[in-house]
Every structure is written in structure tokens, then in C-alpha cells.
Design a protein around this nucleic acid. Structure first.
Lengths: 205, 205
DNA sequence: AACTATTTTAAACAAGTGTTTAAAACGAAT
DNA sequence: ATTCGTTTTAAACACTTGTTTAAAATAGTT
């Protein structure tokens, strides 16, 4: 039968959960220790310091975050389909990891924060998706748009809905369940809106 | 000639700046005191506690945040124009307050966080903008959409670009200036995309 | 001037922070 | 059983945290 998680793994798992939901400065080493069932000394025994442990967690979070996109972009689907699929993939992924975008965006803005490992973004680049877009609008198959703006369009409409869950619940005075239904519907809205905007040559419905 | 700011005002101003850029748990009472040129005791003398001071700052931030929308919605412009204008207003507002959306979204997700004063959102409601939309798509002048989804569409595309500045700079390896140019361009993209999506009856370009 | 209420200060409080220490418990190998 | 390296523990370290105290400085009024 499978062995239990090692102490090191238990701590890292607990750290991931705590860091992602409370942020680096929103939690203490002792809180992570307690959440993992261990004690403070063990945390530093295995990971040297709170910051080192955080770097590991952040790195992992980034990896998860980027991979869900890379998988889609690496496929051999036609461009329009890739855009559809990446939105679907993001919504699916974020349904199980709703706290990730806020975590990443926030921690990237911390002063002492993450001088980030840009390998992640090179991974996106190396899928050739940007070149594919450039070619597509040179051939008139897609609306011309700067890659930064395209990235913003996709991420805004995928990530923000999950980042703003608590705000939305307050604004519209709705429950978690109701909000989740809205999010499911929102995926389709975003897909249609973005596809229509980016590929306007479609002559009609 | 104008008197200097009072001690109380100086502290509140410093608190606003520090809280908004670092978050509640990202800063200390002493940091706020130092930023205002005062000492710790004065902070609690005027504001009772860190939490009380924070509530005040958060309340003010919310007010600013909501007001920029309310002003537009209260105007007598036609609906489509209102949507255009609210996006313009948001981008203008956020250009000078880029940290606000992240601050609000984050602090709304804190555990001990802001059991929020829903007055703010009632203010939006009372502009009648939602009723106006309902009527508009009953008359076929606008695409039918749930109000939560409409709110999400607008806020996603206005707020996220400013929240993700540091992420975007890292992803695309661009400077502040370059990013700001992208944001200016993004405003127009968002306006066209949203208007086209929400008011699709336009027969052509 | 003297008295009062308000404002400011430096110092202290207990509790919490990240981190380290040094000893104990453990596991595997001889 | 003894040794060894690894893992775990409890305790302590120095420092920061939010908050309070009690005295000092200031301003206002008579």
C-alpha cells in the first residue's frame, strides 16, 4: 500500500494551500506548520526559510497556471479553435483553482516579490502561438492586434471572473451556487464575444 | 493661506497610500505612522486601531471606485453611449488609481475582511442602469444578458488590465511606458468589442 | 497668570514573528 | 547493542506586531 506523504511533502502541500489563500504576508510560518501537522522548526529544517518555501510554492503555482494554456496552444487545432479551447481550458482549470489568478497577480506586485522566472512565459512563446496569430492577421484571417492586447483580452475575461467572486457576490447579493452558474454561462459569453471580435470575417450567424 | 493638513488628515492620507499599495496584512501601524511623519500612538489616538483605520480607508476606496461609474450611469445619454462612456471613465480613473481594483478585490477576499457596506452597490442599482438594460433587450435593442454577466464583462475588461500590470510586464518583457501605451490602445479595443457584442443589430461596419 | 482640555511623546506591554539551537528520538548498519 | 546520520522536538533567540500607559507639551479660556 502507498506510504503516507513524507513530512517534507506534507509541509509543502500545506504551504501551498495557506500561501495561495492568504498570501505571503497574510500568514505565518507557524500557521503553515500547524496546517501540516508539523512544527515550526521542521518548516525551516526542510525549506530553510519562509521566503524559500514561498518561492517554491509560487513557482509551482506559476507552472500550473501556464501549463493549462500551453497544452492547448501546442495542439494542432486551427487558430480559432485554439482560442476557443484555451478559454474552455482556463475556465475548467480555474473552477478547481479559483484562487490562483489573484495569488499570482498579487504576489507579482509585492515589493520584495518574485523576481520572476521568465521561463514560464518563454514556454508560451515557444508554442508558436504568437507567430501563428501574426501570420493569421497578415493573411486577413484574424483581426490585427498586438500580442499584449490579445493576452489581456483572454486573461481579463478568464481570470477576473474568478478573482472577483467575493466582490460579485456582494454586488449582486447572490450565493456561491448562483455565482457559479453565472460563471458557467460566462464562459460561453466570453467565447462568443472574443471569437466574434477576433475573427470578424464571418459574414453572419 | 491654507493651513497644513491636520495630524488626523496626514495619518489618514498616509494610511490610504500604504494600505492600498501593500494591503492590510502587508503593512504595520508603525509603517503608516512613519509615512505620515507621526508616531504609532497618534494613529491609535485618532483612529482607535489598525482595523478601524483600515475600514475608513477601504470605505473611501470603495466610494471612489463606485462613483466613477455612477456618474456615467446617472447621465441621460442613450444606453449604448453609457456603456462606451463608463469604459472610458473607468480607464481614465484607473490611469490615476491603478492599484485600486486589486486592493478592493483582495481585501474583499480576506477572512476577517470587510463585511461590506452594500450601500455602494445600491448606488449603482439606483441609477436605474440595470432596469434600462432589461428594457433595452426586451425591446431587442440589446443582447439579452444577465446583469451579473454584464457587470463581469465590463469590470473584467476594465479592471484586470490594471491589476495585472506587473504580470504583463514580465510576460511580454516590456517597460512601463510600453505597457501604458498598450493600455491606451486596449481601451478602444474593449469598447469596440463590448459594444459589438452587446448591440449586434448593427448591420455592418 | 493659572487652569483646562487637547494633542503629542517616549516608553512599555503582551503576544506574535522568523529563525536557530541543542538535545532527544528514530532508523539503518554494523 | 552500539554507532551513525537523519529526523523531530521543545525551547529559546532577537525582533516586530498592535495597543496602551502615563507623562509631557501645546493651545485655549478665563
Amino acid at each position: 500500500m502507498k506510504k503516507d506523504l513524507s513530512t517534507e511533502e506534507k509541509i509543502k502541500a500545506a504551504a501551498k494551500e495557506v500561501f495561495i489563500s492568504k498570501g505571503f504576508s497574510g500568514c505565518s510560518t507557524r500557521e503553515i506548520a500547524k496546517a501540516s501537522g508539523m512544527n515550526v522548526a521542521l518548516v525551516n529544517y526542510y525549506f530553510r526559510s519562509k521566503s524559500e518555501l514561498f518561492k517554491l510554492v509560487f513557482h509551482g503555482a506559476m507552472e500550473d497556471f501556464v501549463n493549462s494554456m500551453v497544452n492547448v496552444f501546442s495542439s494542432d487545432a486551427p487558430l480559432e479553435q485554439k482560442i476557443r479551447l484555451v478559454i474552455e481550458a482556463e475556465y475548467d482549470f480555474l473552477s478547481t483553482h479559483p484562487e490562483l489568478p489573484a495569488f499570482i497577480v498579487n504576489e507579482m506586485s509585492r515589493e520584495e516579490g518574485c523576481q520572476i522566472d521568465t521561463t514560464f512565459f518563454d514556454k508560451i512563446l515557444s508554442t508558436g502561438i504568437f507567430d501563428e496569430c501574426t501570420k493569421a492577421f497578415e493573411e486577413g484571417r484574424m483581426r490585427k492586434i498586438d500580442m499584449a492586447n490579445l493576452t489581456l483580452l483572454i486573461m481579463s475575461n478568464c481570470d477576473f471572473p474568478f478573482m472577483s467572486k467575493n466582490l460579485m457576490k456582494a454586488v449582486h447579493k447572490i450565493s456561491d451556487e448562483e455565482l457559479n452558474e453565472r460563471l458557467i454561462a460566462h464562459k460561453e459569453i466570453v467565447i462568443e464575444m472574443l471569437i466574434t471580435y477576433l475573427f470578424p470575417q464571418k459574414t453572419n450567424k
